[in-house]
Design a protein around this nucleic acid. Structure first.
Length: 862
RNA sequence: GCCUGGGUGGCGGAAUAGGUAGACGCAAGGGACUUAAAAUCCCUCGGUCCUUAGUGGCUGUACGAGUUCGAUUCUCGUCCCAGGCACCA
């Protein structure tokens, strides 16, 4: 028998061979059907983690499978290389973000290569390279020219001691993550992409993405958040100005008793100016704007506000309504003004009770009463209109329409829709990102960099400061420039960089022609490869990354750079990788082996009972991380890949189990032994290529099992990516083969068994390419198994020559028997009724009814 | 609060145009081989009951109803878990 299965040997051997022969290199072949398989590219943090391994293994199986099915498969890999961690690491390790990033990329590329993924490495992309981001700058200019990129004042999280802008993730409970001082909101002029122009289009097309998980589609729809309602004008007393509100509840307008404006609303200053309320208003507005209004704390803020000193008139009732500015009114939604109906909105209700404002009920629940004095909470539900003049007695759902009609007819307002989606703020006061190609000139204002000056290269010799603020504004030679319009040499370059989500919004197009230097991508290549047929990645990107990518594709479509609107036809979001965590009340999180086994687990250090022992997402602080590189040395890539797929279906979370990995390793050993035990017999015969009837009867079962397995594995992969059940089907086949001795060989038997072994390794080759390749070559093949065709099942082998019929009495299983497929239902019924075991149950009783399900089941009802 | 998913043995998970619940694997127990161990191979494995140990009875897919000859699967209600959104007027 051949020596032991030593994964390290065969894996390094084949990886080197594949790399040398560039077997995974792909070119546009217009005669072949293309398949673009993409996995979300990683941030080069330094090490591949197990989540990457899972993600890329799933993708690799599909890529290899599709290739074997005859598709021309594009399967690229690259690096989402800009971002904050590089800056932090650079400060902590006294290095440079570029150096840190590039060396991480080298390390991670090596790790990926050890996993045996079928990437075309000639198409590798690194987003922090000028060859890449210059086209992003180019697109920015084009968007600016067309009004899709604009500048406006906006609030950012600002830490005064650190003199820096903080990302939302860097604000912890309202405090700076670095110095723990309070974070305040600071107004800065920033760049935005006008994604809201596409809100409707992005929403409509959500329903045209049948290849996406419903969950993700629902999340996208929610995020875009369309509401239908009306805009209504309220006249301000003693003023020529109006307040326009947006509401979805115009049916409740008769109950509107006061008005709330967002603190940033321009009318707030105007109305209070010069009145006795001015200072109180200013103090309030100043205080609210200091608060972090983006974090989770917001929900706990009590409703509060101050009177502006002005009144407006309810257009339906003529009632005078006091105008407040309130913390719960948001400038970013609707018009920034709310008509408050305390009886039917909880926030308005709380506010009214606090400031002793009138509450008027205008919708009553059907069949019961509602009283504004005794009610303890708002009634937001449906009901019958009251206190609403001509609309009394209508259902409020009808009034919604008739009041909208009335408002439109009398020119008081109009139907409209509102989205919760906001424009995409892309300015980052950060160093490690794509420079925004704009220039500020004292005489000309904001001037775009001429296209011929691109790329604006991010200087790589900047020193990062403790505290984290960007060094770009301090770099005179970068900042100081000539105005392209007037030539004034005191112009200043924009020193903000772009959000890293911009890079990841078009990288999939760049993969089609990564070295193209005349534009973002070669139109011919893009036309051939795009859209992505299958995209695979974590759910954590279900909203932002995917939405931004869909948006970018629309922008490119408007510019006629691409012909399609949706970049990803099918999407698979894989689940997290989890592992058991163990928490000791005294020692904190433990490695699982530091606790005893069994039910009442104890800490081995102190003997205390374990507080929590449950399965959670892997994280360093919880000491439940698995490092892929130790798995590779211990078991090899094939076992690691096999376990990732076998342990659970891809969209669910995967629970890591060391014993499960052992089990996968055992299975590969089993195949290895089986193949080598038979190798001397099967090596020199050709694969059986006859039909089932050509075989001796006792071999037909094996033939059938082979073809059933092909069918099962193919449909499991093709229809639903259920690799776990596909693998278990192969296990069943292997288990069956194990029962056979090959010594008493005949030509027919050995050629059939060669087919069996070939089938096993062909079906497994997308999952475990190295061991499959090794056995494939030992069988005498001279080209890679990757180039082999996916096996085809024989239809005739799937036809059953006997059928099992189960017999139930009142739905309970009582007996079963075997019939030939040509047996009539009537005969099956007779056989069931005369069955010995059935007779025991039915003798002496009346059979009320007999249900026969075609050649499958008989149910006798007593 | 709203929107998604999900709840099946000791564990990961199979099985849904309604038709044998628990495939495959892990763990556990027993046995074979061995001087011994590892490795390997074979058997048992949801619970429970039996003076007949069986191709046995009952029970069992979060809980409670319903539809049906028949429900893990469909409908309604309840509970629990995970994820997402959240002062969106």
């Amino acid at each position: 028998m051949k020596e032991r299965y030593i994964p390290e040997e065969i894996e390094t051997k084949w990886q080197a061979s594949w790399e040398l022969s560039k077997i995974y290199k792909v070119t546009e072949d217009f005669n072949k059907k293309k398949y673009y398989l993409l996995e979300m590219f990683p941030y080069p943090s330094g090490k591949i983690h197990i989540g990457h391994v899972r993600n890329y293994t799933i993708g690799d199986v599909v890529a290899r499978y599709k290739h074997m099915r005859g598709f021309n498969v594009l399967h690229p890999m690259g690096w989402d290389a800009f971002g904050m961690p590089a800056e932090n690491a650079a400060i902590a390790n006294r290095t440079h973000p570029a150096r840190w990033t590039y060396s991480n990329i080298d390390a991670m590329r090596n790790q990926l290569k050890k996993m045996g993924f079928s990437y075309d490495w000639d198409r590798e992309i690194t987003t922090c390279r000028p060859e890449y981001y210059r086209w992003e700058q180019w697109l920015f200019l084009k968007m600016y020219e067309n009004g899709m990129a604009y500048r406006k004042e906006s609030y950012v999280n600002w830490c005064e001691p650190c003199q820096t802008v903080l990302a939302n993730e860097q604000v912890e409970a309202g405090l700076c993550w670095r110095c723990s001082n309070p974070v305040r909101q600071k107004k800065l002029s920033q760049w935005f992409f006008k994604i809201t122009d596409f809100a409707e289009d992005l929403l409509i097309h959500c329903d045209l993405l049948p290849g996406w998980p419903e969950k993700v589609v629902a999340m996208q729809k929610n995020w875009i958040g369309k509401s239908a309602g009306a805009e209504i004008r309220f006249r301000i007393e003693n003023s020529t100005e109006d307040i326009v509100v947006f509401t979805t509840r115009q049916d409740t307008i008769f109950g509107a008793t006061f008005m709330c404006l967002a603190p940033e609303h321009p009318l707030v200053q105007k109305l209070s100016k010069g009145t006795s309320f001015e200072s109180a208003v200013n103090v309030f507005v100043e205080r609210i704007l200091m608060q972090d209004r983006s974090g989770k704390e917001m929900e706990s803020y009590e409703k509060e506000g101050v009177f502006t000193g002005s009144w407006c008139i309810n257009p339906m009732t003529g009632r005078r309504m006091p105008i407040y500015t309130a913390n719960f009114a948001l400038m970013g939604y609707g018009t920034g003004a709310v008509m408050s109906v305390p009886a039917h909105d909880q926030r308005d209700f709380d506010f009214a009770r606090k400031y002793n404002l009138d509450i008027v009920v205008v919708v009553k629940p059907e069949g019961s009463d509602l009283d504004s004095f005794s009610m303890t909470e708002a009634y937001p539900g449906e009901g019958i209109m009251v206190n609403s003049g001509a609309f009394n007695g209508l259902r409020n759902t009808e009034a919604l329409e008739s009041i909208a009609d009335y408002l439109e007819a009398n020119n008081l307002g109009k139907r409209t829709v509102s989205f919760r989606l906001r424009d995409w703020g892309i300015s980052r006061q950060r160093y490690w990102g794509t420079p925004i190609p704009m220039i500020h000139c004292d005489s000309c204002g904001v001037v775009p960099v001429p296209e011929s000056d691109l790329p604006i290269i991010l200087p790589e010799d900047a020193d990062l400061q403790e505290g984290g603020q960007s060094p770009l504004p301090m770099l005179e030679y970068f900042k100081k420039t000539k105005c392209p319009k007037c030539g004034n040499s005191s112009a200043r370059r924009e020193t903000d960089t772009m959000d890293t989500f911009v890079e990841s919004s078009w990288y999939f197009q760049r993969y089609c022609s990564p070295d193209y230097y005349e534009g973002m991508f070669d139109p011919a290549a893009d036309n051939y490869w795009m859209p992505v047929d299958q995209y695979i990645g974590g759910v954590e990107h279900a909203i932002l990354h995917l939405l931004y990518s869909r948006y970018f594709t629309r922008v490119l479509n408007v510019f006629r750079l691409v012909s399609y609107k949706e970049p990803f036809t099918h999407l698979l979001t894989q689940g997290m990788v989890c592992k058991e965590t163990v928490l000791c009340p005294e020692h904190g999180f433990l490695f699982p082996e530091e606790a005893t086994e069994g039910k009442d687990r104890k800490c081995k250090l102190c003997g205390n009972l374990i507080e929590i022992g449950r399965v959670e997402k892997m994280s360093k602080s919880k000491k439940n991380v698995v490092d892929p590189s130790t798995l590779l040395t211990k078991y090899g890539a094939d076992t690691t890949r096999l376990f990732c797929l076998f342990a659970s279906p891809p969209e669910r979370s995967l629970e890591w189990s060391e014993q499960g990995v052992e089990g996968s390793f055992r299975f590969l050993n089993r195949i290895w032994r089986l193949a080598h035990a038979w190798m001397p017999y099967i090596k020199y015969v050709s694969t059986f290529d006859g039909e089932i009837d050509d075989l001796e009867p006792d071999l037909r079962g094996v033939y059938k099992k082979i073809h059933q397995t092909i069918f099962k594995v193919t449909t499991d992969i093709e229809d639903r990516f259920h690799f776990n059940t596909a693998i278990s089907a192969v296990m069943e086949l292997v288990n069956m083969l194990h029962g056979f001795q090959i010594e008493d060989w005949s030509i027919q038997k050995t050629s059939l068994f060669r087919q069996a072994i070939e089938t096993v390794i062909l079906l497994l080759s997308p999952v475990t390419p190295h061991i499959s390749e090794e056995i494939w070559f030992e069988l005498g093949n001279e080209t890679s198994i990757y180039e082999a065709s996916w096996p085809k099942h024989s239809e005739s082998a799937l036809i059953k020559d006997t059928l099992l019929v189960v017999v139930q009495i009142n739905g309970k299983l009582r007996s079963k028997f075997i019939v030939t497929p040509d047996t009539e239902d009537e005969a099956i019924k007779e056989k069931a009724l005369s069955d010995e075991r059935i007779q025991k149950f039915i003798s002496g009783k009346t059979v009320k009814k007999v249900v026969v399900v075609q050649k499958k089941l008989v149910n006798i009802v007593l």
